[in-house]
């Protein structure tokens, strides 16, 4: 049995119906535990005070903002190469969630930025990159809305997503030449020296895991909706 079988809409609907409740429960448990631990059971930072605790929302949402696009990229490639309808619809379903994650990341960043840097917004490379990511999401969504034929829309948004990924990456590195950063370095990395302290590390990991599961849950729900609306369209066409 291959993974590709679930590219069939009916099979995908059956499978996703079974795993959705599990995913929903798991993600809400992880997020509740992670956020509770992070907000109430961790010490305040010696420099940043309690403001640091917004990290438990900021980092996971920022990660998912980028990973949502990455997921769309992979789904788009699968659609263009193997032409599985579910894949194209999953990419479409992920985009609004990506927008929300990006907005959360920008908003929490701004709230954190005010006490730390004295301003809600600065044209820092990382902040700017997220703003750019946001307009890429908007363009992608607008293109989906503008095209009537669903398969053409899937083709065109997929190719836009792929080309957009390259240019989003280019922008990410181009901004480094354009402005000096205020943003702190990576919170998590393979290089141990750079890590946040262990007291923050574990609740942060739990929050991230919770956010990943939340993202998958939402994508599944939205993909199911998209599949249903495509089925409605197909039924209408057949009865005409």
């Amino acid at each position: 049995m291959s993974l590709w079988e679930y590219a069939n809409p009916a099979k995908f609907m059956a499978l996703s119906a079974r795993i959705l409740p599990i995913l929903a429960i798991a993600s809400s448990c992880l997020l509740l535990i992670g956020l509770f631990w992070g907000f109430f059971l961790t010490p305040a930072d010696y420099k940043q005070g309690s403001t640091v605790k917004i990290i438990f929302l900021h980092v996971p949402s920022a990660l998912m903002a980028i990973n949502a696009w990455l997921m769309m990229l992979i789904a788009s490639l699968i659609w263009l190469v193997r032409r599985h309808h579910v894949s194209a619809l999953a990419a479409k379903a992920a985009a609004p969630i990506g927008v929300t994650m990006t907005l959360i990341a920008i908003a929490t960043g701004a709230i954190w930025g005010k006490p730390m840097w004295g301003t809600y917004w600065a044209w820092d490379p990382r902040l700017t990159s997220f703003m750019i990511l946001l307009v890429f999401y908007f363009g992608y969504l607008a293109l989906w809305e503008a095209i009537e034929d669903k398969d053409t829309a899937a083709d065109l948004t997929s190719i836009l997503c792929i080309v957009g990924s390259v240019f989003a990456l280019l922008s990410r590195y181009a901004v480094n030449f354009w402005s000096q950063g205020l943003h702190q370095g990576a919170s998590l990395s393979l290089d141990k020296e750079q890590h946040v302290d262990n007291a923050f590390y574990f609740p942060l990991l739990i929050c991230i895991a919770g956010m990943v599961l939340l993202f998958i849950t939402l994508v599944l729900i939205r993909t199911r909706t998209e599949i249903r609306s495509r089925r409605l369209l197909a039924l209408r066409l057949r009865n005409n």
Partner: peptide, 9 residues
């Protein structure tokens, strides 16, 4: 809307 973001770099 599609082209301007691509012009950024």
């Amino acid at each position: 809307l599609l082209v301007l973001p691509l012009y950024i770099p």
